[in-house]
C-alpha cells in the first residue's frame, strides 16, 4: 500500500464490486472535449466526479466555454 496516496477513500463500483482506479476519461461541453484523469471502474467504466472538481475546475471551464 502506498503511503502518499489514499487521500480519496476506497471507492468500490456497486455493479462490479471492484475498486475504482485512475484513468483517462473524456469530458465534453459545448462542442469541446478533453481527456482528464478520473477514478473509474476498470470493468464497466462507471466514473466518479468528486465535489471539489465539479464545483471547482469543471465549473470554471464550463463558464469559460459558455462565454466563447
Amino acid at each position: 500500500m502506498s503511503e502518499t496516496k489514499e487521500q480519496t477513500p476506497k471507492l468500490i463500483c456497486g455493479k462490479c464490486d471492484i475498486e475504482l482506479t485512475m484513468g483517462k476519461v473524456s469530458v465534453a461541453y459545448m462542442g469541446n472535449s478533453f481527456d482528464v484523469d478520473l477514478l473509474h471502474c476498470p470493468k464497466c467504466h462507471l466514473v466518479f466526479v468528486p465535489e471539489e472538481l465539479a464545483l471547482g475546475k469543471m465549473q470554471k471551464v464550463e463558464l469559460a466555454l459558455e462565454e466563447k
Binding site: S26, V27, A28, Y29, L38, V49, A54, V61
Partner: peptide
C-alpha cells in the same frame, strides 16, 4: 449531471451531499 451521496434508511434515503456539473463525462450524452 446531478450527484447524490446517500444511504438507505427505513425505505427512504438519508441525503449527505448533492452537487452537479454541466459537462458530460465518459459516455454521457449532452
Amino acid at each position: 449531471t446531478y450527484w447524490v451521496e446517500y444511504t438507505p434508511k427505513d425505505g427512504g434515503f438519508v441525503i449527505h451531499n448533492v452537487y452537479s456539473h454541466r459537462m458530460t463525462v465518459g459516455k454521457e450524452q449532452p
